[in-house]
Amino acid sequence: MTPPPRTDRDTLTPRPLNVRRGVNPHAPGSAHLRLGRTEILATVSVEDKPAPHMRGKKEGWLTAEYAMLPRATTDRQARERNLQNGRRHEIQRLLGRAFRAAVDLRHFRGQTLYVDCDVLVADGGTRVASVLAGYAALHDFADRLIQSGKLSEWPLLHTVGAASVGLIGDELRVDLDYAEDRVARADLNVVATDAGLLIEAQGGAEEGPISSAEYVRLLTAGVEAVGALLRELHRQL
């Protein structure tokens, strides 16, 4: 079943974004981000210990973790205790690649950075909202390092964000909510920089194959939506 036409925004406009940084007093970097009705809490932690595969190397390492609270969805989901959960593992790998593209890890030799993204409320786009929230937390972390004098050089190489995009019938929509995502015949999660450089595109066709032209339309719209979201994110940081 096709969801009704959008009345609050046009098909190529992302949902309203709101971000607050520094929300966790215990974390050296943190942010709360709302994208439509999806809400993410992201924190950055630092361990003065290198990852095993980075010992003796000139840069540190960054890893990401993702979890969804039991009542993040309309029905209670069992608390995620299995670290090998396939969906969680896939999202964590995406987040890790996105954040490592953002951070100059040469500033953190002998250390490991952890970016934890927890879904408080889910209404579609939790992984792309986690990329945006995690980047906001890293920005908060970097700013605190500069302000405290612990670093003299800005440690973020790229401004990184993400957006979902899908085809509902023949209509292309960006930043799908849950009702749209569940009926899309093809969808992508696009991770890119504010300069339009692509980091990752993840997704595919749901109801039979799509053409290469349709895929390019999705990818192009996704990159443009990332740019729009990052402009709004930086306005609020």
Rank of each mutant, 00 (worst) to 15 (best):
L69S: 12
Q147I: 12
R144H: 09
V23S: 10
I199P: 00
G196K: 09
A78H: 13
G203M: 10
L95E: 02
K150I: 00
P25Q: 14
A136C: 06
R20Q: 13
R81D: 15
L219P: 02
Q202V: 14
F141M: 01
A162C: 11
R79I: 10
L197E: 15
E232V: 12
L62M: 01
N18P: 06
A162I: 11
V121T: 11
E180Q: 05
E47A: 15
V191A: 09
I40D: 08
P4R: 04
Q111A: 05
P50V: 14
L105A: 01
P70W: 06
M68P: 07
S164Y: 12
Y135R: 05
A192I: 05
R79K: 14
L33W: 00
L237R: 06
R88T: 13
T220S: 13
D104M: 08
V223E: 04
A163D: 02
T112R: 04
R235P: 04
T193S: 04
L156K: 06
L138V: 02
K58Q: 15
A205D: 01
T220I: 10
L145P: 03
S45N: 14
R217K: 10
L151Y: 09
L188C: 04
A64T: 03
R55M: 03
S164K: 13
V23W: 05
I168Q: 14
M54T: 09
Q92T: 07
V216F: 13
D123C: 09
R217V: 06
I146E: 09
Q92L: 03
A67Q: 04
V131D: 02
R71G: 02
N18E: 12
A195D: 11
E206L: 14
F99N: 01
L172P: 02
V44M: 03
A186H: 02
T126D: 09
D170H: 04
Q92M: 07
G149Q: 07
N189K: 05
R6E: 12
A129I: 08
R37F: 11
V128Q: 05
G29L: 05
A142H: 02
Q92S: 09
V115A: 10
L41T: 11
D118F: 06
L69Q: 12
D48E: 15
G86C: 07
R76Y: 11
Q111H: 03
V128M: 08
Q84K: 15
R185M: 08
P4Q: 08
L218I: 00
L188Y: 07
H26L: 15
A195L: 12
L188M: 06
A102G: 01
I210H: 02
T73H: 08
A98V: 11
L132T: 09
P5F: 10
A42F: 03
L176H: 10
R185G: 06
L120T: 00
E224P: 04
L35Y: 02
L132G: 07
H53F: 14
E39M: 04
Q111K: 11
L12C: 05
T193M: 01
D48K: 13
I168F: 13
I199K: 00
D194C: 11
